[in-house]
């Protein structure tokens, strides 16, 4: 049985092809302006990766912001359910998923059976998302992908108290003018992110193990800062950005199996 999961986010689109539960193809592209085309392209690239064409697919689940725009999906499921499903499949001990994407962030509480118990989302505010990191990297004239490593070098992080990205940026500029080192400011930014995420996450019952998903999970500074806040180690999967697509593909497999019965 070959199935696919396609996650069309606001910044990136990902697809995973599963064959009897094993990943045989995957892809990741920028979504751009057109979710429908991005979804199709992501799927085709993943099929190419698996050396198959779409006739091989028995079932396709679409998820993410652009899930409604693709016509090829057999079903649409929200990314909340998909992230939970994917995380639980890889790590049965997971009870909390923290997903930090380009433009939104969410925390999902998962039961023993892998089902979603509760969730909380923040899409109004950039603080705590990839966008926030981009703005800060730009303000400090540092490469985005170096931000995390630099933050780990600090011995005394500068306090950044603003909750708003715009205010925080202004604070950063003030700190630079005061002569505070970039390393300490960057560490302060990572602490600020962790505080925001923590404040959002504790609205749901947060339990170990915690798994982080989404592109921001590649930032070791954020991971470390969150570990400090939650006082526990956080699992970061090998491919954190693909968790939604993986979960969608697993659900596709489950749906198809139950249809056959």
């Amino acid at each position: 049985m070959i199935v696919a999961g396609v996650d069309i986010g606001s910044l990136t689109a990902k697809a995973i092809i599963l064959s009897d539960g094993k990943t045989i193809g995957e892809s990741l592209i920028m979504t751009g302006h057109n979710s429908r085309i991005a979804g199709r392209n992501a799927l085709e690239l993943a099929l190419k990766d698996a050396k198959l064409d779409d006739s091989a697919l028995s079932y396709i689940v679409a998820t993410g912001y652009g899930r409604l725009s693709v016509e090829f999906a057999s079903e649409q499921v929200t990314e909340i359910t998909c992230h939970a499903k994917g995380a639980h499949a890889l790590y049965p001990e997971v009870r909390t998923v923290i997903d930090l994407g380009g433009q939104d962030s969410k925390a999902i509480a998962i039961g023993e059976d892998g089902k979603v118990v509760d969730f909380v989302m923040n899409e109004k505010c950039a603080a705590g998302t990839g966008r926030f990191l981009e703005v800060m990297a730009s303000a400090l004239e540092v490469e985005l992908k170096e931000l995390g490593d630099i933050s780990l070098q600090s011995k005394s992080p500068a306090p950044i108290s603003s909750v708003c990205t715009v205010f925080a940026e202004s604070e950063v500029v003030s700190r630079v003018a005061e002569g505070v080192s970039k390393v300490d400011i960057i560490a302060g930014i990572h602490n600020a992110i962790a505080s925001r995420i923590y404040a959002m996450a504790v609205r749901i019952p947060v339990r170990e193990k915690i798994v982080m998903t989404g592109g921001v999970a590649y930032n070791v500074g954020v991971v470390r800062a969150l570990e400090e806040r939650f006082k526990t180690s956080i699992i970061v999967p090998e491919k954190p950005q693909h968790m939604g697509a993986l979960g969608a593909a697993i659900i596709a497999g489950e749906r198809f199996s139950s249809l056959k019965k």
């Binding site: 929200t78 909340i80 509760d118």
Partner: peptide, 12 residues
Amino acid sequence: QTRTRVEAFLET
């Protein structure tokens, strides 16, 4: 975004 939330809630 609202749709996603409600949908996720119903899935729950």
